[in-house]
């Protein structure tokens, strides 16, 4: 039992962590938290099932198209729900605009795809085992994403530019960085990561429209606890969240597991409003 708690906990935690990274990538580029983060995960799952099972495309092609779909939704988020409200960040209109977009996508999926969970294809044609691809795919996706992001941020020029606009938007623009294009690129990247989370976790979560609000909430927990913009913190917090949730699931049952996660989340957050690893910023008067 312990092994299965750990296995499913780490798998689901990896998905949460990836959605957390999705939030972070968008936040770093725009100082905006977007409600579409979980929606991207849902879209990754549904597109994977659509392309591979329903349309019969090869797995690799379906995978790439699902990621492309995520990237597209990321860019749409930037254009429709983020850019128009960036001028007045202090009014927090982005909370409502991204919520509206997330709901639109979610309802569209419910109506045009299905209101019931649909099966998700197996990616690798190998026999089921104890350490099945259902579990190791999300973990692998998480590792690859984190390593990939580190390499991108540390060793490429584009990555340095991303860091620059995250650190100081005005200074970066003053240096002549194409801030808007970088922001669009960040949102596309976030879209890819979100869709990857949904695709890799497809066999665990299935292709289901209601995954969107679930992932939006559980994906935000690692961001809040790990400190915003902090990817390593998000991964650690995401894995802990997954383990905690699965343990609670086994011990006290599904509903009370949700209550336990929510309560723990609120209490930790009230005690550390800037996350377990974050530092507070001085307010300007």
């Amino acid at each position: 039992m312990l092994a299965s708690i750990v296995l499913s906990g780490l798998a689901i935690g990896s998905i949460y962590a990836l959605i957390g990274v999705t939030y972070n990538v968008m936040y770093s580029a725009s100082r905006v938290f977007s409600f579409t983060a979980g929606t991207l995960g849902m879209v990754g799952g549904i597109l994977g099932s659509l392309f591979i099972l329903r349309m019969g495309l090869p797995v690799w092609l379906g995978f790439l198209l699902a990621l492309a779909g995520g990237a597209l939704l990321g860019v749409i988020t930037e254009i429709v729900a983020v850019r128009p409200v960036l001028k007045s960040l202090d009014q927090h209109l982005y909370v409502l605009s991204t919520l509206a977009l997330a709901l639109m996508v979610q309802q569209f999926a419910a109506i045009e795809w299905s209101t019931e969970p649909q099966p998700f294809p197996r990616i690798f044609d190998i026999a089921r085992g104890g350490f099945d691809q259902t579990f190791w795919l999300p973990m692998a996706a998480c590792v690859i994403t984190i390593v990939g992001l580190e390499l991108l941020y540390r060793h490429t020029l584009v990555g340095h530019a991303f860091l620059a606009i995250a650190e100081d938007n005005y200074a970066a623009r003053a240096l002549g960085l194409p801030e808007r294009n970088l922001r669009i690129a960040s949102f596309a990247l976030a879209g890819v990561i979100g869709a990857l989370a949904g695709f890799a976790g497809g066999q665990l979560l299935l292709a289901f429209f209601a995954n969107a609000p679930l992932l939006t909430f559980y994906g935000f927990v690692p961001v809040a606890l790990g400190g915003m913009g902090n990817n390593r913190g998000a991964v650690a917090a995401g894995l802990i969240l997954g383990l905690f949730q699965q343990a609670a699931n086994f011990l006290v049952g599904g509903i009370f597991a949700s209550v336990a996660v929510f309560t723990a989340f609120i209490f930790v957050l009230l005690a550390f409003p800037d996350g377990l690893a974050g530092a507070s910023a001085q307010r300007r008067v």
Binding site: V95, P213, L269, P273
Partner: peptide, 24 residues
């Protein structure tokens, strides 16, 4: 204590939890 988005999402989480409890 929390930032706007944090607060928004906690209220949303609360709404989900209440419905789940009603169901269970």
């Amino acid at each position: 204590r929390l930032r706007t988005f944090y607060f928004a999402i906690t209220t949303l989480g609360f709404a989900t939890i209440v419905t789940q409890i009603a169901l269970a």
